[in-house]
């Protein structure tokens, strides 16, 4: 047996599984989206793209994902920078604080937000007590609830993406900028921010795709009236049982995700290479 054969044997089970149980199912979804009773058809796409209701869902999905991604980036960049610059003990704690939610089931985390945001929950109660909102103020079943829940779900991805890039920045660049007379904030803006940009872009692209394709958190926090694309797909699969239509919606999501992921792969490839 040659080295080549050994490597082939080692990788073959994984390749087979990937081909048959990952790429073939995706291909099946693509095929089903254009299948009709009398041969290939685009009617499922036409139905989605011709209906203002579904176009509204698509627009809401994109809009919410953009807002969620932007907030994640705004919190994620300073968080990652502080994580990279604090002492090792505090850094370890911060990493645990970021990773613990990341590794907890999204169902459990969403449940936590349901408790916090419900009518008698801690947050609406606090806002009412502070006199910031009216007595009938509610957060559940609003887009705000979706944004709050999703930011918590996706912030760890963003922070870790940016942290990976910031830790590779030579700290002497920062010192050089400071000795040359830059203030701390100038250094942050003209040295760290441009160098961390690949991490911010990669984290944002990842957060956007994950946000656009999630339905557990938006479904539970937003309710059925504020539907997003992924929730609509889930409904078509489990409630109306219209699989070709579900497949067509999934393909629309898939195309959007691929368009976002191509730059993601380029950015991450460059920063690691």
């Amino acid at each position: 047996m040659s080295d080549r054969t050994e490597n082939l044997l080692l990788i073959l089970p994984g390749l087979l599984l990937l081909a048959l149980a990952f790429f073939l199912p995706i291909f099946q979804m693509l095929a089903l989206s254009v299948s009709g009773p009398d041969g290939p058809t685009l009617q499922h796409f036409a139905r989605f793209l011709g209906d203002p209701y579904y176009l509204g869902i698509l627009w809401r999905t994109v809009r919410l994902s953009l807002i969620i991604t932007a907030i994640c980036a705004l919190i994620g960049f300073p968080l990652a920078y502080i994580m990279a610059r604090v002492g090792p003990r505090l850094r370890l704690w911060l990493i645990v604080i970021v990773i613990l939610p990341l590794m907890t089931s999204v169902v459990v985390r969403t449940f936590g937000w349901m408790v916090l945001l419900s009518r008698s929950g801690l947050i609406p109660e606090l806002l009412r007590d502070l006199g910031l909102v009216k007595r009938n103020f509610a957060l559940m079943q609003t887009e705000t609830a979706i944004v709050i829940g999703m930011v918590q779900v996706l912030l760890p991805f963003m922070a870790l993406s940016i942290l990976g890039v910031i830790t590779r920045i030579d700290p002497r660049l920062e010192e050089a900028a400071r000795t040359m007379g830059c203030s701390f904030l100038q250094t942050l803006r003209t040295v760290i921010l441009p160098l961390a940009l690949p991490g911010i872009v990669a984290g944002s692209l990842l957060a956007f795709t994950l946000s656009a394709s999630s339905f557990v958190t938006p479904g539970l926090l937003g309710g059925s009236r504020i539907e997003v694309l992924a929730a609509s797909i889930y409904g078509s699969v489990t409630q109306t049982l219209d699989w070709p239509f579900a497949a067509a919606q999934a393909v629309i999501l898939f195309v959007g995700v691929i368009l976002v992921l191509i730059p993601y792969i380029k950015v991450t490839g460059r920063s690691h290479g």
Binding site: F22, M29, S213, S214, A246, A250, L253
Partner: peptide, 27 residues
């Protein structure tokens, strides 16, 4: 490219994979 291929289930949203898996298995 093989490495990238093996990591692709990590970046592709699970809902897209899930719906494909359900449809392929059912058929």
């Amino acid at each position: 490219s093989l490495s990238a291929l093996f990591l692709s289930p990590l970046v592709l949203p699970t809902i897209i994979y899930a719906i494909g898996m359900l449809m392929l298995w059912s058929s």
